[in-house]
Nucleic acid binder design. Sequence first.
DNA 1: AGCGGGATTTTCT
DNA 2: GAAAATCCCGCTT
Length: 196
Amino acid sequence: MDESKTDFDFLNTSADLAAKRLLGCTLTRQIGNHEIKVKIVETEAYDQFDAASHSYRGNTNRTAVMFGPAGYLYVYFTYGMHYCCNVVIGGPDYGAAALIRAVEPISGLSLMVKNRHGRDGIEVSNGPAKVCQALDIDKSLNGQNLRLPPLILQKQPELSSKEIVTGARIGISQNKDLAWRFYIRGNPYVSKPNKG
DNA sequence: AGCGGGATTTTCT
DNA sequence: GAAAATCCCGCTT
């Protein structure tokens, strides 16, 4: 059977719904003989109709991956020093992606700590640039097919709405009130729990 | 615990 | 030329 066509159908929807569906899914990163496996615990949605999104200004060299099919990796470089990674979501003509803001280690923790220069505990992966550092993701993985090594996304059963917290996105200056950040309730790796 | 600043370069105006 | 989907450190409560 051709799994490649159907695996990521669950991401072929609006950015906010797809970002929510990514919570609980796993990422497996192969680095040489080593393997790191993590669970996605925090995401943010971005699409072409959203002024805060890189895709808002259209399909450029930088954003081309966002305008491709779901299930590919979009990596961008920011603040002159950090990489952040996204899972492309929605159909090929819908420029959308979900920023992976935090993950929970499942296996390969010692290598993650090493990649984070000794940072331990939740500091290993409780932020988008920390996730990329821990998983050794940089621009060379931009456009990577997430069905294939060295980075594989696996669907997990969808969480119930009670397990998901929704709120405003972090670190943006446009569309601040749009509640397109999602995280797993009570998870210690969430970068910044909502106040209140 | 919370605030403020610096690091540093890609991307688009 | 300015801003940027961030992080870390140091200083103040």
